[in-house]
């Protein structure tokens, strides 16, 4: 197993671990095969993601991608945040081992779900 230095750095010092109280959006995603679970919380203000926190049950790659996405998404507009892909998370971490690209790279999916959740909540309140 060869993780990049950046993956190991995020794995050892994950950013933004935890939950947001009364979040504006939550995205939960699980990999049914390997069993990884990720929960991403976002705070949105004026169509901008101002805070993000995560909780993850998974391997080194799962934790590092979770940590990375909370950094990537902060202060991005919703439109920009929606464009963050699995690929962009992997690139920001200087790559992931090939076998981890699909199974443990769930953070972007969790983010898209959290944004969707935010939009649904907003619609309901309108």
């Amino acid at each position: 197993m060869a993780y990049s230095a950046k993956v190991m750095e995020h794995f050892q010092n994950p950013r933004n671990v935890g939950e947001i109280e009364n979040p504006d959006g939550v995205g939960e995603i699980g990999n049914p095969v390997c069993g990884d679970i990720m929960k991403l919380y976002i705070r949105v203000k004026d169509d901008r993601v101002v805070d993000a926190k995560f909780k993850t049950f998974g391997c080194g790659a799962a934790i590092a991608t979770s940590s990375m996405i909370t950094e990537l998404v902060k202060n991005k507009t919703l439109e920009e945040a929606e464009k963050i892909s699995r690929q962009s998370v992997a690139e920001a971490l200087d790559g992931l081992p090939a076998n981890k690209m699909h199974c443990s790279n769930l953070a972007a999916d969790a983010l898209h779900k959290a944004i969707e959740d935010y939009k649904n909540r907003k619609k309901k309140n309108e």
């Binding site: 993780y3 190991m8 390997c34 069993g35 049950f57 998974g58 391997c59 080194g60 934790i63 981890k100």
Partner: peptide
């Protein structure tokens, strides 16, 4: 999850194994 424990122990010089999907080589 097992691999995340292995990595942490490995950083301290301790070698162990896991039955988690990440380490079984089969994704299960």
């Amino acid at each position: 999850e097992g691999e995340s424990i292995i990595l942490n122990l490995d950083l301290k010089g301790i070698g162990v194994a896991s039955g988690s999907a990440c380490t079984s080589g089969t994704l299960e």
